[in-house]
Amino acid sequence: MTGEQTTRPTALVTGASAGIGREFAHQLAARRHDLVLVARDRGRLERLAAELTRRYAVSAEVLVADLSDRSALQTVADRVADRDRPVDVLVNNAGYGQRRSFLRNDLAVEEAAFDVLTRAVLVLSHAAGVAMRERGRGHIVNVSSVAGFIASGSYSAAKAWVTTFSEGLATELAGSGVTVTALCPGFTNTEFQQRAGISKPGPEFLWLDPQKLVADCLHDVDRGRVVSVPGLQYKAVVGLLRVVPRSLVRGRARLVRR
């Protein structure tokens, strides 16, 4: 459906059709935000839009886009930058994991993932940062991962970039009324692992509930926190990873995905 102009704030969520992105859409709608829902699957997006409209009485706009396609990404960036229909909250959530290690994977597959995990975050954050700074308000949430604190393949490297990029952008926007938060979850009970073809690793206590994860993140956004690590277990893990020698991190690195 097409979003109509209202006095409510608007949030744009990428990767909104499932998992953490879907939960962000629900919780932002519950906060009385209109939504712009971005993902590749039109059917899932339209069902979600109808559900949000019915349940929360908000407007939900569907924007179908494969963010690895530069033309499609630019369409989303143009929507973020639209002065007549301002986006007050941007959630860069789209992403996926790789079933194979870097050197065993096709380069084209790696490049597509790189575009979604990093280039899309760069392009959309630029569009949002410029537009929001002009208005003097707004929030950017970039979904990173605890994987960014370890050394395990291209996914880990991409998420390390997202976290560091978000910290730098938050510094650039300090005092402007615009906040930037990097969300760094660990294992989360969504369909992410299944879609990546990865068996569910680790003990149960390591797994996060997406509803609480998103609620904790939005609380951190409200407080202006730059790096949001949900769950006491992952706060402890990240704290340890920040101080142990990198040689030890590399030697013990295990694949950790959100």
Rank of each mutant, 00 (worst) to 15 (best):
M1E: 03
M1N: 04
R8N: 14
P9Y: 08
L12C: 08
G15W: 07
A16I: 10
S17L: 12
G19W: 04
G21N: 06
H26E: 12
A30S: 13
V36A: 09
L37H: 02
A39Q: 11
D41M: 05
R47F: 03
E51W: 07
E51L: 10
R54T: 10
R54S: 09
R55A: 11
L63M: 12
S68A: 15
R70P: 14
R70M: 14
A72R: 05
A72I: 08
R83V: 08
D84E: 14
R85E: 14
P86M: 15
V87W: 03
D88P: 04
L90I: 13
V91M: 11
N92C: 11
N92V: 09
A94Y: 02
G95H: 01
Y96D: 00
R99A: 09
R100C: 04
R100D: 10
A108Q: 15
F114N: 06
D115F: 12
V116W: 01
R119M: 10
V121T: 13
L122S: 04
V123T: 09
S125Y: 04
H126I: 10
A127P: 05
V130W: 05
A131C: 12
A131V: 09
E134G: 06
G138I: 07
I140M: 08
I140Q: 01
V141E: 01
N142D: 10
V146E: 01
A147F: 06
G148W: 03
S154C: 05
K159P: 07
T163P: 02
T163E: 02
T163Y: 00
E167R: 03
L169A: 13
T171P: 04
N189Y: 10
T190L: 08
Q193V: 05
Q193H: 13
K200L: 15
P201Y: 13
G202M: 12
P203G: 06
D209K: 14
Q211M: 11
A215V: 13
A215E: 11
D216L: 11
R223Q: 14
V226H: 01
G231P: 00
V244K: 06
V256L: 14
V256G: 00
V256K: 00
V256I: 15
R257K: 06
